[in-house]
Simulated assay, not measured.
Amino acid sequence: MVSRFLAHDLLWGMTPRQLPVDAPAWAVKSIGAGQPVVVRRAESAAGQVAVGVRGRLREQRYGMSMAIAAVTRRVSPEALCHVDIHRDLPALEALAQLRPALDACAWVWGVSGSAGFELASGFAALHEASDLDLILRTPQPLARDQARELVALLDAAPCVVDMQLQTPFGAVALREWAGSSPRVLLKKATGACLVVDPWNPQEQAA
């Protein structure tokens, strides 16, 4: 059993019976259909992991906790880089276009969001206007010039592509790190804060 989960991991094992009594009907339906839940970047009690349930609509997101002992399967974003599904959609076309360049970079990358959900589960989550959400594991600092080069690469794709840099201390949007502002928003399990260096959380804005 995996004892440590990362944000954007997809987990199976949740049942409708495990949902809180006040869970919305759409969440009960999603879990009843066998859909996975996605790990959230949030604190949770011992033996629990913070997760979210996805519905068919963008606004249908339900946050809760799941018992780690109930997890039967885990799929990480980086396990989805080379999974193919045959649907003619801009997000999937963008993924195929970007894959060679991302494979050639020095970092581990992965697919999250609607594309990751569909690639992992087989449940349709993408549509014509869907963005492509990616993550980049950056245990070491990524230079801002490199970030700008990555943004230029993503902007050549056939749909909007968003990428999160996953630092050891939280996540920051690639586009924000590639920008001119000296401070960027670092998302951590305890909340979000402005920092000058996402790889050094002690260097926080006042």
Rank of each mutant, 00 (worst) to 15 (best):
S3D: 12
R4F: 10
R4Y: 10
A7F: 03
H8T: 12
L11A: 12
L11D: 11
T15F: 09
R17F: 09
P20L: 13
A23W: 02
R41G: 04
A42W: 10
S44D: 10
A45K: 11
A45H: 09
A46C: 08
G47C: 04
V53D: 03
G55D: 09
L57W: 10
E59I: 00
Q60L: 03
R61K: 11
Y62W: 11
Y62L: 09
M64G: 10
S65E: 14
S76K: 13
E78T: 06
E78C: 08
A79C: 06
C81V: 15
H82L: 05
I85H: 03
H86F: 12
P90E: 05
A91I: 11
L92S: 00
L95M: 08
A96L: 01
D103A: 05
W107N: 07
W109Q: 02
F117K: 08
A124D: 15
A124T: 15
L126D: 06
E128G: 05
A129W: 10
S130C: 14
L136W: 07
L136Y: 05
T138F: 07
T138W: 07
T138P: 05
Q140I: 10
P141S: 08
L142M: 13
D145K: 12
Q146I: 01
A147V: 03
R148H: 04
E149G: 11
A152Y: 00
A157Y: 04
V160M: 13
Q166M: 09
A171R: 01
A171P: 00
V172F: 02
R175P: 07
G179F: 05
V184P: 05
V184D: 03
L186P: 01
K188G: 12
K188S: 14
A189H: 04
A192Q: 13
A192R: 09
A192E: 09
D197Q: 08
P198L: 02
W199T: 07
W199F: 12
N200H: 15
Q202H: 15
A205P: 00
